[in-house]
Design a protein around this nucleic acid. Structure first.
Lengths: 246, 246
DNA sequence: CGGCGTTAGCTAACGCTGTTCACTCACTCT
DNA sequence: AGAGTGAGTGAACAGCGTTAGCTAACGCCG
């Protein structure tokens, strides 16, 4: 008897397994926000689902792997959020889209502090993460970075902004940017890539400092400073006209 | 580190207690680097010192407080490192000193990754740290920030660099900077403070990204990029001439 | 000098953690 | 119908932070 059908499903067992796996990931996420990163215990996840802790080992070889999967899921969720903000911009000018994505990044970060801490706060992946290569988290992280990178490239292609010439970069930096460039699908001037990194560092630094409380020594509400930095970035990208807050 | 010294006052008991307390802090630090932040267990510290775990409760009300003390110690150590680098600059021009301190910051961070993660990651202080006010860690953190702040102020006082006028700041940002300024010993133009924050965000962002591995997607060795960002900061502070790497 | 209060340190214990093992039971396939 | 697979179980182990109750040494004061 072959009922063929839902194209994408395997055997019943495989479907059930996939369902449970999804439920585990969802529950883990929920426990994370409810109990903080330290409260993210296998037993807590299991209890929430009405099964016993060792059962989870049918799905993940260790807690660490489960957390890594969770990190990947969170990166994906964050990427979705950014893309949604980007695509909500009409008309779709990449400059405005970049600013929208940046604001969405900060918004997600401050409304999901615990999750953000897991992604960017060195908690999960060891602080000394030589761990060459792979893992779903690494992959999802690249998708996240790609959202910004693509927008930045698009901005430059549509309307080039001033970038340092290659002769203005130190030879060491040039070499670093070159080896990076070689790994990319499209080739961009090295100066563009240095500007991209510089902007990304500003964005990352600003949001990290806010979420981790390292701006509280100075600012009560970091949003105005964030907007100010965003304007500086926009100026650097020649999209200052797009910077008015929505 | 910044404890005052020789009299070593107090009864014998008090001295013994102070000694043990210092030993605990030193051992904690050592266990931290040896076993990572997760391996920083009370029992491990106690074992290393040849005593039992509950004994530590005579010195700290909880593990969390011990970690906070450790964080304070690390901030102090880092501050010492920065001040040493600053004071090693001859002749003592504040521009050069700032760059020296910035490089020392990065150097300490990448040679003390685990400790850095504890200070600047989301691990130690709760990610949602409303915890108003106090604690030795907060205090030591302010000393650390003060090193940079003082240098920056000195640079401006000696030779003012161009800063945005108050009318170029949004009213919200102006208000934020004003309430911060009110808490400071000396009053500086708001534009200076916004530039300081901007520079500090760059420095923090760059070093955090490197240590937490969020630059590995692009750069193999982030140092050239760090130097490039440092030059940008120097340019902004009118000390570009001081930016040549030592 | 003797006694007493203070206090550093101990062991034992509780409840929690991640993880392993041996087992049961339901489902799937031949 | 029987064999085999695999999800889920409870018990157990080592380790965690923390509390309680005890011991013994120390410092002070009469």
């Amino acid at each position: 008897m072959s009922d063929h059908m839902p194209p994408e499903a395997g055997t019943r067992r495989e479907r059930a397994r996939a369902d449970t796996l999804r439920e585990i990931r969802a529950t883990a996420r929920q426990v994370l926000v409810a109990s903080g990163p330290d409260g993210l215990a296998l037993r807590a996840i299991a209890r929430e689902m009405g099964l016993s802790a060792p059962a989870l080992y049918r799905y993940f070889p260790s807690r660490e792997d489960l957390v890594e999967q969770l990190v990947a899921d969170l990166y994906d969720e964050l990427s979705d959020h950014l893309e949604a903000a980007r695509d909500a911009v009409v008309p779709a000018r990449p400059g405005v889209q970049l600013l929208a994505a940046a604001r969405a990044f900060r918004h997600w970060a401050i409304t999901h502090r615990v999750e953000f801490g897991l992604l960017f706060g060195s908690a999960a992946q060891g602080v000394v993460p030589d761990e060459a290569g792979e893992g779903p988290a690494e992959l999802a992280g690249r998708r996240f970075g790609g959202v910004f990178a693509a927008l930045m490239a698009q901005i430059y292609v549509e309307q080039p902004f001033p970038v340092p010439g290659e002769d203005e970069l130190t030879p060491e930096l040039r070499r670093q940017l070159q080896t990076w460039c070689a790994k990319l699908p499209v080739a961009l001037p090295l100066g563009v890539m240095s500007v991209f990194l510089s902007c990304w560092i500003t964005l990352y630094g600003m949001v990290c400092m806010e979420v981790f409380g390292h701006l509280r020594f100075a600012l009560d509400d970091p949003e105005p400073m964030f907007e100010s930095e965003l304007r500086r970035v926009a100026r650097q990208l020649g999209i200052a006209d797009a910077a008015a807050p929505s």
